[in-house]
Write a protein that binds this DNA or RNA. Structure first.
Lengths: 246, 246
DNA sequence: CTCTATGTTACCAAATTAGGACCAAGGAGA
DNA sequence: TCTCCTTGGTCCTAATTTGGTAACATAGAG
């Protein structure tokens, strides 16, 4: 298989134009799809160069990216290996309920939304669903000891749940029942100011500091089953993570 | 596709009539629509010139506008790229400079403090040092491509460095030389509002969202060699973490 | 006329990519 | 142990692509 060429796509999405970026994307997909087994070696650089019809320099640059991202590890003379994340277990961010319980607080929540509808174009991209697919939407106000702590908005691919009411308390418990609980997740986190709408729901002042966390949950086969946007109160929540050397 | 002509719009909004402004508007839209992927390259100038049927000079002026607005970045010999929010690999233990270099951005910093002194009682606890021990203190304004990104305040156990001036550029590089680079770290992260003092240093508005990260760096033998408080601009920094759901 | 926006052309400089050579580390088998 | 092969690590040269810059021409507005 060769990487797509560099010809322009007049009405469509632009390709980056840099071959090593296209290649690193292809490799990233192979890792996510488990084409390259976690902990196992990926094909040697010379093989990849032939397979994708690029030079070894380009392969090395593409692999460099993934090594920098921590997805791959090189071992001189042995090969390049997919990092096995199950053994690392660093940066384990526990779920809201678990987190609250471990702090000796009582978690509760109020439903803001619990519906089934069609994907938006944005979601069809991020969930990898075809336009017109159905999804479940859940939104909850999360509280600890009766004090509002966060707003959680989840979108779930329709194949993962029988119906919206299958989620009574824990979303992940419901996904577990259908065998669609994510085994891996990517989280993106940034600091924002809490806007008027969210502030009203949480009964706090607008403009307060907040943490926005976007999570994409992956199934074992690489499909994205869940996207969740969580907005945490900055004045009430700390995140702790343990890091290891890259 | 060609840009709309120059005819006047009688009752409507005044079109500028300058082709490069129309073009920069079209490009701005393409960026907003994600037709040009964030972080990816836009088509080369010669391609844009052909596609929009304008000269390369005009393309360059249009691109100049977007570069000045900070939406695009040029890289000689490589292409012009859509600026993406910095995504920091939260689970990866790397220093600011290493992180920026690996992303192809140019790190720089301004020293705010670089001294040797005695531990405070607080620090003697967190660093595990006996009262009266000496420590190095470093504080820097961190920039990427000349734009302020964070304020970093580090305290280093004195055994880990020969003298304060050993840190020229990268703190972790200096620690590496003496064999005292942390192999593990604990980070605590929370959202805050940037106060007047920090805002003045970073040249931004007070009250902007920020991420405060406290890090304790451990040596292989378990000693804490480093404590760092970093204040990141919320509008310029994303943190990403990959995790395994329990 | 001048001034400005734009087009055309040419060439320079920097980055990517290709392709190759050689070295060093690791593993497999005699 | 030793040898041989594979694999990543490093260096080089050359071609191609891409942005950087300059000189000059053209058209329209004032």
């Amino acid at each position: 298989m060769a990487i797509a060429g560099n010809e322009s796509t007049p009405g469509g999405i632009e390709s980056t134009g840099l071959r090593y970026q296209q290649l690193s994307g292809a490799l990233r997909a192979s890792i996510a799809n488990r084409d390259f087994a976690p902990g196992g070696a990926i094909p040697p650089e010379r093989t990849l160069a032939k397979r994708y019809d690029v030079s070894r320099v380009t392969v090395r640059r593409a692999v460099d990216e993934l090594v920098n991202e921590g997805l791959l590890v090189r071992r001189h003379g042995a090969g390049t290996f997919v990092v096995d994340r199950v053994e690392k277990q660093f940066a384990k961010l526990s779920s809201f309920s678990e987190d609250m319980i471990s702090r000796g607080r009582v978690p509760s929540s109020r439903w803001l939304d619990k519906t089934e509808s069609f994907v938006t174009p944005d979601e069809s991209l991020s969930l990898g669903l075809s336009p017109g697919s159905r999804v479940f939407r859940f939104a909850r106000l999360r509280c600890a000891d009766g004090i509002s702590m966060a707003i959680e908005r989840s979108t779930i691919a329709s194949y993962a749940l029988t119906d919206a009411d299958a989620v009574v308390d824990s979303l992940y418990a419901a996904l577990d029942k259908t065998g669609h609980r994510p085994v891996r997740a990517l989280q993106k986190l940034r600091a924002i100011l809490i806007d008027a709408e969210a502030a009203a729901i949480m009964d706090i002042e607008p403009g307060a500091p907040g943490l926005m966390i976007e999570r994409r949950g992956f199934l074992a086969d690489g499909r994205i089953v869940e996207t969740t946007e969580s907005l945490y109160r900055g004045d009430a929540y700390d995140f702790i993570a343990e890091l290891v050397e890259a």
